[in-house]
Amino acid sequence: MISKVVFIGYQPLTEKTKEDFYFQNLKDKNIEIEYWDLSEIYFKGILNNQLKDNFIFKINSFSVLESFIKRQNRLDTLFLSNITFEYRVLTLYRILSKYKCKTSFFARGALPFHVATSRIGNVFLKFQKALDINLLLVFLKNKYAYFLKKSGIVKPHDLIFRAGINGIETIGVGSDIENKTSKIIDINSFDYDKYVKTKDSERLLINKYCVFLDEYFPFHPDFEMLKIKTIQPKEYYENLNRFFDLLEKKFNVEVVIAAHPKADKYREKDFFNKRKSFFNKTAELTRNSEFVIAHCSTSISFAVLNMKPILTLTSDSIKDIMPNYYNLIAHFSKILNSHMVNIDEIESAEIVLDKPNCIRYSEYTYRYLTSVKSQNLVSSEIFTETILSL
Rank of each mutant, 00 (worst) to 15 (best):
Q232E: 08
Y146C: 01
T103V: 08
P309M: 13
P261S: 05
Y99V: 09
I59A: 08
Y192I: 06
F21L: 13
F272I: 05
K141R: 14
T286G: 04
E254F: 05
S374E: 03
K27A: 06
E32T: 11
I359E: 12
I95H: 05
Q50S: 15
P218K: 02
T170G: 03
S289D: 04
S104L: 04
F190G: 02
S374R: 01
D214I: 00
A110H: 02
I69Q: 02
K229V: 12
G174A: 02
V6P: 05
H339E: 12
Y326K: 01
I228Y: 00
E345A: 12
S67H: 08
E19D: 10
T170K: 10
Q11K: 15
L305I: 06
L313D: 05
F161N: 07
V123R: 13
R74T: 09
E86R: 09
V138N: 10
S301I: 07
V378A: 03
L311Y: 08
L137H: 06
T17G: 04
L226W: 15
S175N: 12
S175P: 04
K149N: 05
Y216H: 08
I228N: 00
A349P: 03
E363S: 13
N357M: 04
K98M: 11
S277A: 14
P323G: 13
K197H: 07
Y10F: 13
L388W: 06
L13R: 02
G172C: 09
K29R: 09
L137D: 09
S297F: 07
V256S: 10
F43N: 12
N25D: 10
E248Q: 15
L240N: 03
S39E: 05
A107E: 05
F161M: 08
S97P: 14
K229C: 03
L111E: 11
I59E: 05
S182A: 14
L159Y: 14
I351G: 06
S201Y: 08
Y35K: 03
L247S: 00
K262Q: 11
T230N: 14
K29L: 02
I83E: 03
K129Q: 14
D176H: 09
E238A: 01
L388P: 01
N357D: 15
K208C: 01
F113G: 03
T170L: 02
N54M: 05
S81D: 00
F190W: 11
L90W: 03
